[in-house]
Simulated scan of single mutants.
Amino acid sequence: KDYTIKLLEHAKKVEAVYDVGPETDNYDRLLAYVFIDDVMLQESLLKEGLAAVRFIHKPNNTLEDEFREIQQDAEKEKLNIWSHQNYFQKDGFHPEVLK
């Protein structure tokens, strides 16, 4: 959250770009790629090990393979969420393992 806030506070331009499918999900959340000063937020978060690839559904999956590759690199480097064994699991985040 802090990383994203910092990027947004210093941004000159923020854009949302939609994939080929619906623009919202069943919960009415926007499904968009967010660009902050021409840098994709999702990609930045994955590179920094601050996010995980989850809940991508066709046809809004154009960048899924790229995102998974970026995540694998962050995992190998043990960046942020990947530096704590079992912090991120299939059912979500487990902050209790940090204690």
Rank of each mutant, 00 (worst) to 15 (best):
Lys1Met: 12
Lys1Phe: 12
Lys1Ser: 12
Lys1Leu: 11
Lys1Cys: 07
Lys1Asp: 10
Asp2Asn: 13
Tyr3Pro: 05
Tyr3Arg: 12
Thr4Ala: 06
Ile5Lys: 14
Lys6Trp: 01
Leu7Met: 09
Leu7Lys: 06
Leu8Pro: 07
Leu8Lys: 13
Leu8Asn: 06
Glu9Phe: 02
Glu9Thr: 07
His10Tyr: 07
Ala11Gln: 04
Lys12Pro: 01
Lys13Cys: 01
Lys13Ile: 00
Glu15Leu: 13
Val17Leu: 08
Tyr18Gly: 12
Tyr18Pro: 13
Tyr18Ala: 09
Asp19Lys: 10
Asp19His: 09
Asp19Arg: 14
Asp19Tyr: 12
Gly21Pro: 11
Pro22Tyr: 07
Glu23Thr: 14
Glu23Asp: 15
Glu23Val: 12
Thr24Trp: 09
Thr24Glu: 14
Thr24Ile: 13
Asp25Glu: 10
Asp25Arg: 13
Asn26Gln: 13
Asn26Ala: 14
Asp28Ala: 08
Asp28His: 14
Arg29Leu: 02
Arg29Ile: 02
Arg29Glu: 01
Arg29Thr: 02
Arg29Phe: 10
Leu30Asn: 12
Ala32Leu: 12
Ala32Met: 08
Ala32Phe: 08
Tyr33Asp: 01
Tyr33Gly: 04
Phe35Trp: 05
Ile36Tyr: 05
Ile36Phe: 04
Asp37Lys: 03
Asp38Ile: 09
Asp38Leu: 06
Val39Ser: 13
Met40Ala: 09
Met40Gly: 08
Leu41Phe: 10
Gln42Phe: 05
Glu43Asp: 14
Ser44Arg: 15
Leu45Glu: 11
Leu45Gly: 14
Leu45Ser: 14
Leu46Arg: 06
Lys47Ile: 00
Gly49Lys: 00
Gly49Ala: 03
Leu50Cys: 07
Ala51Asp: 02
Ala51Leu: 04
Ala51Gln: 02
Ala51His: 11
Val53Met: 07
Val53Ile: 10
Arg54Gln: 14
Arg54Ser: 13
His57Cys: 02
Lys58Glu: 06
Pro59Thr: 04
Pro59Trp: 09
Pro59Met: 05
Asn60Ala: 07
Asn61Ile: 03
Asn61Ala: 13
Leu63Ile: 05
Glu64Val: 08
Asp65Ile: 08
Glu66His: 10
Glu66Val: 07
Glu66Phe: 06
Arg68His: 04
Arg68Tyr: 04
Arg68Gln: 11
Glu69Trp: 02
Ile70Thr: 11
Ile70Gln: 00
Gln71Val: 01
Glu75Gln: 15
Lys76Glu: 13
Lys76Gln: 13
Glu77Ala: 15
Leu79Thr: 01
Asn80Trp: 12
Asn80Pro: 03
Ile81Lys: 02
Trp82Phe: 07
Trp82Tyr: 07
Trp82Ile: 00
Trp82Cys: 02
Ser83Gln: 09
Ser83Cys: 05
His84Ile: 15
His84Glu: 04
Gln85Glu: 13
Tyr87Cys: 03
Tyr87Arg: 11
Phe88Gln: 08
Phe88Gly: 03
Lys90Met: 04
Gly92Trp: 14
Gly92Met: 12
Gly92Glu: 14
Phe93Ala: 00
Phe93Thr: 00
Phe93Ser: 03
Phe93Cys: 02
His94Gly: 01
His94Asp: 04
Pro95Ile: 05
Glu96Met: 08
Glu96Lys: 15
Val97Ala: 03
Val97Cys: 02
Leu98Cys: 06
Leu98Asp: 05
Lys99His: 12
